[in-house]
Design a protein around this nucleic acid. Structure first.
Lengths: 245, 245
DNA sequence: CGTTCTCTTGACCAGCATCAAAATTTGTGG
DNA sequence: CCACAAATTTTGATGCTGGTCAAGAGAACG
């Protein structure tokens, strides 16, 4: 029942390459070195959730009742303005947590990009557990710190980068956050649509498409299929992403 | 020596209004209900840092050695692109923490907006302490969650809002994060320059200035002095910030 | 009071959005 | 497997928001 995806990055990587059978089953617990006795208690409290593409885990303004951990697939965290403008605050992949903040309601909706599974705890159970299982809290704090860094990188992207730089930066960062990336390091899987990339990068679908075409023309990436890219010149792409283009 | 500014919001508020003398001295500890024995150990590890305006606490890419807590004043978290473009990821006020992420180097520089003081721990000491003082970690996790929410709100601002909406949204949110706001709820203190607001909102100085003029023309705010605003129509400002304008 | 810095205002321009349509991909039924 | 319909992506033409460049108005400092 318990199926939290690994917190430590190296664990997530081993999972992705299929090298860690134990982690596959209960990666979080093992990687965080939680004693077996506590493991059993975690097992008892965990529930599994499965989502179809576009199905909502929760909606914007829903009360926060659970803590979730993504075990497979990918989701989007999105928020709508009254007039329909949408901002995607982030994409979530195996290992990511949702609901760490102690707010009463979700400011963003979480919806599946593809068939996905999650593991959840009631927030009350979870809080109580954290008071007893020390490593759980430590691991979560580390992860929250990393997510905060990612959110600030996103601010830089949205605030000060051109459309082309935003897309380049997105393509550079994506493999790092998706443990299920293809074995080949420079092949990038895009489980999201152009519209979702646009809403993540604060652009329109058309501009995302045009920017991608530009990257292809510059010879920085090659398109293997609609949602599979190969980075041809990683350094050049990185320079562009960092504003050195 | 120990002078962590309060974690729980109500404590920070009491500090701001001068109502909590004990909190003034060691707000974090008291509010988090840390036992006296642990308090003494915290005291032994804490150091105070004072900064002049524009003085750097650390620079972008510096190694992370300490955890900081702002006890007075305000700072900016900023990052530069090679060509000089600057993005300010956030403003920090009394009570805010820096260095929660476990990364080796700072992705953003921290610089004082005004004369400020901070309390710091060596990261090693701090980690060790967290393993023993339970409430410290719990409180930090809550705070990290809140900062993450704020960072995601910022993504919405930068990604999908117009210049006028960004400024309105900034003015709505600022009092909530600055415990030293004036007693009058609708008077907003701006310890940062127009240029800093611009770099925070992903705009230029000129656009910030024009947008502020527009807000005044619309009768939503009145300018008491260069860096002091009075919100005249809070609901209208909020609607504008949320895209209902 | 004058020097300097910051803020405000104005004129013009560019990057991205908008509107429109063609090209590809995806899904469905025969 | 093919044909057709629907949805998504790409490409093209035009317009607007906000950036750039320039000058003037206030504040802050000695």
């Amino acid at each position: 029942m318990l199926e939290l995806a690994g917190l430590p990055a190296d664990c997530a990587k081993r999972r992705a390459t299929g090298g860690c059978d134990v982690c596959q089953a209960r990666p979080f617990s093992v990687c965080a070195s939680v004693p077996d006795a506590d493991l059993a208690r975690l097992d008892g409290l965990a529930e599994t959730v499965a989502l179809e593409p576009d199905q909502a885990l929760f909606r914007q303004d829903d009360p926060v009742t659970h803590i979730f951990n993504v075990t497979s697939g990918s989701l989007r965290l999105s928020r709508l303005l009254p007039d329909g403008r949408r901002q995607i605050a982030g994409f979530l992949f195996a290992g990511d947590f949702i609901g760490l903040s102690d707010e009463a309601r979700h400011a963003f909706a979480a919806e599946a990009l593809e068939p996905s599974t999650l593991c959840r705890f009631r927030q009350g159970d979870y809080r109580a557990l954290m008071r007893e299982v020390r490593d759980l809290e430590t691991a979560l704090l580390q992860r929250a710190g990393r997510e905060l860094s990612a959110a600030r990188d996103q601010a830089l992207r949205l605030g000060r980068k051109s459309a082309l730089e935003r897309l380049a930066s997105f393509l550079i960062d994506l493999p790092g956050i998706d443990p299920l990336r293809p074995a080949t390091p420079d092949v990038i899987r895009l489980p999201m649509t152009r519209g979702e990339i646009a809403d993540y990068l604060g652009l329109t679908i058309e501009t995302v498409s045009r920017s991608l075409t530009k990257l292809k023309q510059l010879g920085l990436v090659r398109q293997l299929s609609l949602n599979l890219l190969k980075v041809e010149r990683h350094d050049a792409l990185r320079d562009l992403a960092e504003g050195l283009g």
